[in-house]
């Protein structure tokens, strides 16, 4: 612990003043969700690796993270010790809820992890491939019911993008929003719906056990160890990543921002973080600096278009 601390301090000395600062990470969601998990994982590794002496996590749940975001912007401006976890879901939620506070009001630091979306059908279904499913969707969009998370969330966006790519009117999709992953999964396993959308990780064990059939994944390339084509390969130009990021407070000086970015970079480079991601089953999709800013802007633009197409944003 002590030498790790010294090492970290030494590394930090290269760019910024050499001191380790405490952090308070806001998880804009209830305990138990992905953002809360990310925040608590960061808390553990930041402390264990000696990057920060003391890290606190606070939960401000509500409305796809927009409640927490609004509070974060209001309370933390100019405070370099305050961080907030966010992600792709927030991008959609800001738009559908017409949130007055957006990601432009915080200082995004880096993308940390990401989930790939998966499209599945119950094992008992006669649908074998994504092509079969899209055929059904074209024939009668209402007859294909989709189970997934909250309206306007990543799952909904994935279905909307797929419909659009397949030439089906996105406003006609029969998307059934469930609260919480467990309930949606139960509906798929119980053969209550035609198909389901969620993260690959959430379905992986079910697919392995043969209770669900994995039709396609939303990544750009095939995923190692997952026996399914990408949506792109199946002929529809859709790539979705449900990423999670860390952002700092608005109104930071360049030095303050650099210090936070350096700490997060150290976190990402640490052995503790690598093994944490492994146990949690999260992919490391670390992206920082200008590359991340560009990516973020592109994601916001695509999301806005598709939410308009689905009819969730006027």
């Amino acid at each position: 612990m002590k030498h790790a601390f010294l090492g970290a301090a030494f590394a930090a000395a290269l760019a910024v003043p050499a001191f380790a600062q405490d952090y308070t990470i806001m998880a804009p969601a209830n305990p138990g969700g992905g953002w809360d998990g990310t925040a608590r994982a960061m808390q553990e590794v930041l402390q264990a690796e000696g990057i920060a002496p003391s890290v606190e996590v606070i939960n401000v749940p509500g409305a796809g993270g927009t409640v927490g975001l609004a509070q974060f912007v209001a309370d933390s401006a100019g405070d370099p010790t305050k961080l907030i976890v966010g992600g792709y879901v927030m991008v959609g939620a800001i738009l559908t809820n017409a949130s007055p506070v957006t990601l432009a009001d915080v200082t995004p630091i880096a993308r940390l992890t990401g989930d790939t979306q998966a499209i599945v059908v119950p094992a008992a279904s006669d649908i074998q491939t994504l092509g079969d499913l899209v055929e059904k969707l074209k024939a009668d969009p209402g007859a294909v019911s989709w189970a997934g998370g909250s309206a306007g969330g990543t799952d909904h966006i994935t279905v909307g993008l797929l419909a659009k790519a397949a030439g089906v009117d996105p406003t006609k999709i029969n998307y059934v929003a469930f609260s919480g992953g467990g309930e949606a999964m139960a509906a798929i396993l119980g053969n209550q719906v035609t198909a389901g959308v969620s993260s690959v990780g959430e379905f992986a064990e079910q697919v392995k056990a043969g209770t669900m059939r994995l039709l396609a994944v939303s990544s750009a390339e095939r995923m190692p160890g997952i026996d399914a084509p990408t949506i792109k390969e199946a002929g529809f130009d859709v790539v979705v990543q449900n990423w999670r990021m860390i952002a700092a407070a608005p109104g930071l000086s360049d030095e303050q921002k650099a210090k936070v970015a350096a700490d997060i970079e150290k976190l990402n480079a640490s052995a503790g973080w690598t093994s944490m991601l492994e146990t949690k089953g999260w992919a490391n999709t670390y992206l920082a600096g200008e590359a991340f800013d560009t990516q973020l802007a592109a994601d916001i633009a695509t999301t806005e278009t598709v939410l308009r197409d689905i009819g969730l944003v006027k």
Binding site: G32, R40, G182, A186, T279
Partner: peptide, 17 residues
């Protein structure tokens, strides 16, 4: 099934990991 049906269960899931 690995289905967390309540918030408590979702946290337990994280605990099991």
């Amino acid at each position: 099934l690995g289905l967390p049906t309540t918030a408590t269960a979702a946290i337990m899931l994280a605990g099991f990991q």
